[in-house]
Amino acid sequence: ASRIVEWQDRSYTLGVFVQANFGKRRNFTIRGRHVGPELAEPAIREGTPRAEKGSIIAAVATDAPFLPHQMKRLARRVPLGIALTGGYGYHSSGDIFLAFSTANPEAALAASGRVARAEFIPDVDIDPFFDAVVQGVEEAILNALVANEDMTGRDGNFVPALPKAWLKDNFG
């Protein structure tokens, strides 16, 4: 999922990619509506007990110029988007979030013996990018769920896909 963020008459793209294998169905939320209890059937079947229950990996990419501490701040907004979908970060969840910028490529190639320069957006102007991260994470997770199909795994473990007809009826 991606967002365009306007700043100082320039447009920047912020994209989010997620590997979403996390959460409990009972907590699932779509656009602020707690829908998990409505999705009880078909039931998830777990034939193999597992110590770990899931994980999420998210990568945030942008062409906006930010400094390393600002990129960390963007990555720290990922859990807010996860929470919007009902992910609470339970004990056994393995979560990895990273953020990077493609801006300022010449800074890494600066000649020896010279001061290198890099542009960056001031900290006081970062809020619209925080919004883009949170919204992008939520959308990326929902996109992954919509694209999924029923899955049967080892020992008869079964996870049903998000029902497309139910989604259309409830969210158009």
Rank of each mutant, 00 (worst) to 15 (best):
residue 157 N to Q: 11
residue 59 A to F: 14
residue 29 T to E: 06
residue 65 P to D: 01
residue 109 L to I: 07
residue 75 A to K: 00
residue 107 A to Q: 10
residue 33 R to I: 15
residue 164 K to R: 14
residue 80 L to I: 12
residue 162 L to C: 06
residue 104 N to T: 10
residue 17 F to P: 00
residue 72 K to G: 04
residue 81 G to N: 06
residue 130 F to M: 01
residue 146 V to H: 11
residue 47 G to E: 06
residue 73 R to V: 01
residue 70 Q to D: 05
residue 14 L to T: 04
residue 56 I to R: 01
residue 30 I to Y: 05
residue 48 T to Y: 03
residue 164 K to I: 10
residue 97 F to L: 10
residue 26 R to L: 10
residue 44 I to W: 05
residue 12 Y to T: 02
residue 61 A to K: 02
residue 1 A to W: 09
residue 45 R to N: 10
residue 139 E to H: 07
residue 8 Q to C: 03
residue 92 S to H: 08
residue 165 A to Q: 14
residue 91 H to P: 02
residue 5 V to T: 06
residue 73 R to I: 00
residue 164 K to V: 12
residue 129 F to R: 00
residue 53 K to P: 00
residue 107 A to T: 13
residue 121 I to N: 03
residue 50 R to V: 09
residue 171 F to M: 09
residue 135 Q to K: 11
residue 24 K to S: 14
residue 107 A to L: 07
residue 45 R to I: 14
residue 79 P to D: 03
residue 127 D to N: 03
residue 119 E to V: 07
residue 94 G to D: 02
residue 135 Q to M: 04
residue 43 A to Q: 13
residue 100 F to W: 09
residue 134 V to Q: 03
residue 126 I to S: 04
residue 62 T to D: 01
residue 152 T to M: 09
residue 130 F to N: 06
residue 138 E to I: 06
residue 24 K to T: 10
residue 21 N to Y: 10
residue 94 G to M: 05
residue 62 T to K: 05
residue 130 F to W: 08
residue 2 S to R: 12
residue 4 I to T: 15
residue 147 A to D: 15
residue 30 I to Q: 00
residue 130 F to S: 00
residue 22 F to T: 02
residue 166 W to H: 09
residue 21 N to T: 10
residue 18 V to E: 02
residue 79 P to G: 04
residue 82 I to P: 00
residue 47 G to K: 03
residue 151 M to G: 05
residue 102 T to F: 13
residue 117 R to D: 13
residue 54 G to I: 06
residue 43 A to L: 03
residue 71 M to N: 04
residue 86 G to V: 07
residue 170 N to T: 10
residue 43 A to P: 10
residue 68 P to F: 04
residue 36 G to R: 11
residue 116 A to G: 15
residue 154 R to S: 13
residue 57 I to Y: 11
residue 154 R to E: 15
residue 147 A to K: 15
